[in-house]
Nucleic acid binder design. Structure first.
Lengths: 196, 196
DNA sequence: CGGCTTTGATAACACTGTTGCGCTACACTG
DNA sequence: CAGTGTAGCGCAACAGTGTTATCAAAGCCG
């Protein structure tokens, strides 16, 4: 009986794409629903009927960010050597962050005030750690790594890469410092620190 | 000739204090100039005459955060053993962050959209790294640490603690994970990884 | 006391996210 | 083929934000 829907899946995708562009071009401050709607030639109502609210739209971006992370992580070929694999996972972590630098702050640093990821989004984020946790567990069991709770090692490795990537993306590092050159060296040192 | 000043140093301090309280109690979203001014029983004009803008007020908080960091860091007694000193500096880093958890995101993760630290604030932040850089340099020169550019090791250590602290403050870690217990173990592993 | 000048509170402006009103435009009836 | 019901959605209002311009208040000097 009603008029045909124009707030459909296609519009949903257009909104998400444009939201990502705005975020990447001008930062979180510039992501306004009015501008977003105007750019996609619809009204702000579209965001509310398709997502629910602005935080919910950001939630969709958050989930998308983790899906891309997951895809890149899954594509890594692991060797079975725990140290080498930690280095590989660490490298792909940074590559993923640099590939979508505007999504990273949303995923990890609450860049948009008022946004809190919902439960399933959090689960999606947690799932990304599975390969890391497995590598660490294998390393401990095979005696390559010290006999420490694998969760401690895994979180520690995650924190390490997250910290370096965060500092880099935030521009907190000295200008003359080249992360690219130092990163693998640092990853190796970190992994070696956990050797038995 | 004019009317007596009420936008004075005392009011400036009251505003900063209250801003910190609001930040800590309800997060960056709740830090509004109108509410801030009302709480201190003045007008929003006060912020503009004393600070210039909201970002400039945040800049003052940013600087205050680094001053507190500096004070805590300076109070650490170093032993001369590079590994032990890295652990001590790492511990005080986390203690500092947890002592003022609302300032940490401002200092390192652009929690307030539109805020960019000015030049002298950045310099203040950089100065905090001096003890870390000295410890690393001594460690490399005395042959305890591997022969790697000290800047690489220092940034790596900073990234490590920053990452763990960030994950903790953001609530990104699993609920059952106790950072307190794992932190020193991780610090030690990280420092040992840089041994010659 | 009148005028000068500095100071600061009020109110306007342009924006934000959000919500409810009410028009639009189709599918189904008679 | 008109009429109607109703889902869909654009528009406009509301409450809030940071910022700025206006203008009244308040002291000193001549």
């Amino acid at each position: 009986m009603p008029r045909p829907k124009t707030h459909d899946e296609a519009l949903r995708i257009k909104l998400l794409d444009r939201a990502g562009e705005l975020l990447s071009a001008e930062g979180p401050k510039a992501l306004s629903l009015r501008k977003l709607a105007a750019d996609v030639e619809t009204s702000t109502t579209a965001v509310y009927s398709l997502f629910g609210s602005k935080p919910d739209l950001v939630n969709a971006l958050y989930a998308e960010g983790f899906r891309r992370f997951q895809a890149r992580t899954d594509a890594v070929t692991l060797t079975g050597d725990p140290v080498e694999d930690l280095v590989r996972l660490g490298k792909v972590y940074r590559e993923s962050a640099l590939a979508d630098p505007h999504l990273y702050p949303i995923m990890f640093t609450k860049a948009i005030p008022g946004f809190e990821p919902n439960e399933e989004a959090v689960a999606l984020g947690r799932a990304n750690l599975a390969p890391l946790e497995k590598t660490v567990r294998d390393g401990v069991e095979s005696g390559v790594f010290a006999d420490v709770d694998p969760a401690v090692i895994a979180v520690s490795c995650w924190g390490f890469v997250h910290g370096l990537v965060s500092l880099e993306l935030n521009g907190n590092l000295p200008d003359e410092f080249s992360v690219g050159d130092a990163y693998e060296t640092a990853l190796r040192a970190n992994a070696n620190g956990w050797r038995r």
